[in-house]
Design a protein around this nucleic acid. Structure first.
Lengths: 204, 204
DNA sequence: ACCTGAACACCGTTCAAGT
DNA sequence: ACCTGAACACCGTTCAAGT
């Protein structure tokens, strides 16, 4: 109970992001109102305006936490396979898909285009760029090690990003359910597709 | 003027889909209300309920027109390169990306997950399956011709679909603008990535 | 059959006011 | 500084009523 009314001490922002993320997870972005988030955090429906310019700014804040989580997962995938860029790339791809399957609505907020028309948000752009950088770094190391073919590193990274992104989108929107219903089936499929991608990137 | 008030003769449904598509193109899905669409079509805000169960059903109707358009474009891409599955695949991928760049908000409605939580819509599922089938057919012909490697046809199609889908998503949300700002630059990039995909699918 | 207008419960946002 | 409550203009949806 002591922790419940500490918002007056400066952590309402975090409480709102947490409550918002939870509500989105439960009901989907379209069915989450700023007023409901405020209520879940135990404040009036105008209190959020102290911390966010508008509703979309709050959603961007939640998206940023998602990109941080993604960055962490990609980092872990790399650490699992030291010195093996091929394995790193596959693991990173699978980790990405895994996150999309675990948190489909968060993934949808991050990449579904709800925030696409917003004026650019510095924190959002920074965290999403950071996640992309992680991927590009794997490619760069693979090229130096001679396991990935030469060429524009960012372009190869973009190819990898596209595959994984497209597959994750299909997985998280349920478009794959008729081919791979279970979580395990989806991840197995993701692994095979990541391997197939690897072949395309490998040196001839 | 004769055509303007023929809604009473049974084509209000079409008029609403058209007005809705136009408004979405202009302002984005989030900023289009059922009431505004009704107004643009020249009827009261309750008239749409004669033709759609709710707002999302109307949006699904618009998405269906998008999938039909996509199916047509894919068909044209195939016809441009008779007997050459490799070229067909590249052309289909580029056509897909082209559509996403031309109509980013329609693309967003089709794949952005706004409709993901809806109960399945027969017409929507049929048209989207049809578009996917077109891609799988190209792969199947390529395998028979010996230019694509053996293996589960649907799985190869899924790989191709993922790349193109992921790239289109990145292109239509503006994530590519710092690398490829113009429409031409994006399409050129799409072509190179489609070629790179082709290498991954080719027989060894 | 097809459409309207009033009504309801919500929504995002603004603003004067309270501590 | 931080939060509240009333107010405004909107929204999706329902429903009785009109032709």
């Amino acid at each position: 109970m002591g922790a419940a009314n500490t918002y007056h001490h400066g952590n309402l922002r975090e409480a709102l992001l947490e409550a918002g993320a939870k509500l989105i997870e439960e009901k989907g972005i379209a069915d989450v109102s700023l007023r409901a988030v405020a209520k879940a955090a135990g404040v009036s429906h105008t209190a959020p305006y102290r911390h966010f310019n508008d509703k979309n700014a709050m959603l961007r804040g939640i998206a940023v936490t998602g990109f941080r989580l993604l960055g962490q997962r990609l980092g872990q995938a790399v650490e699992l396979h030291p010195g093996d860029p091929g394995q790193q790339l596959t693991a990173a791809g699978v980790a990405y898909v895994e996150l999309a399957i675990e948190h489909p609505r968060l993934h949808n907020l991050m990449f579904g285009g709800v925030l696409a028309d917003d004026s650019v948000d510095d924190a959002l752009e920074e965290t999403s760029n950071h996640a992309f950088r992680g991927l590009a770094d794997i490619i760069a190391r693979g090229q130096r090690a001679g396991v990935f073919r030469e060429g524009d590193t960012d372009e190869l990274a973009l190819t990898a990003w596209s595959v994984v992104h497209g597959f994750a989108m299909l997985a998280s929107t349920g478009s794959l359910d008729h081919r791979a219903a279970s979580r395990e089936a989806k991840l197995a499929l993701a692994r095979r597709i990541a391997d197939s991608l690897l072949i395309g990137l490998a040196t001839r």
